[in-house]
């Protein structure tokens, strides 16, 4: 338990650095550090599937973020300091934390979950499906429809990214076009 709190404090420090620093490369690296902290938490919360997925997705999102920012403009300079937005943000943060503190008294305490359906899945997963990994049995046998919905969401978001990034018209990208751009080889 003490170990969890140490990692969470490390993540809070990483978040504050990612928000406030002016150099964009430092901000992106701080986000990467927070992601690795989350993956370490997942490993100690006995969820190895999620830890693998979090590390891999975090590496790919670092690559995408670095391509977006540091190629073109490395400094985040604010010309005027907008005080009203800062104050509204901090007031909201305080109210949100107070509300969370009052409402978390109703939750089940940390470490004793309310596993009504979970007990059934753990006890009869091997008998019903024949799989040894209970998480795979849940996402591909008991709740396969949700996996179909998730595949559709990824498909649609990547399709949207393509529509935005495509050049005008429908001409094929030829070698001359790629030569004109001069991407660093």
């Amino acid at each position: 338990m003490f170990f969890f709190k140490i990692i969470m404090v490390f993540m809070i420090i990483g978040t504050i650095i990612a928000i406030e620093t002016r150099n964009m490369l430092s901000a992106v690296i701080a986000v990467g550090a927070v992601g690795f902290g989350v993956s370490l938490m997942f490993l100690y919360l006995q969820a190895p599937d999620i830890a693998i997925t979090q590390v891999i997705v975090e590496v790919l999102s670092l690559i995408i973020l670095i391509r977006t920012t540091t190629y073109v403009d490395n400094e985040a300079i604010e010309k005027r300091i907008d005080n009203l937005a800062n104050i509204i943000g901090l007031v909201f943060l305080g109210l949100f934390l107070a509300f969370c503190y009052w409402s978390f008294a109703e939750l089940t305490p940390f470490g004793s979950p309310l596993m009504r359906v979970g007990e059934y899945y753990l006890a009869s997963g091997l008998g019903d499906t024949g799989a040894a990994n209970m998480v795979a049995a849940v996402i591909l046998d008991y709740r396969a429809y949700d996996t179909l919905g998730e595949a559709i969401v990824i498909f649609t978001s990547i399709l949207g990214a393509f529509v935005i990034l495509r050049t005008r018209g429908r001409k094929k990208i030829t070698e001359e076009d790629l030569e004109k751009v001069g991407i660093p080889e």
Partner: peptide, 22 residues
Amino acid sequence: VDPLPQALVLTSIVIGLGTLAL
């Protein structure tokens, strides 16, 4: 440990990557 939140979070992480690309 409860397997049902892990099934939810597994899909949520990869959807987050798609949203970041968009």
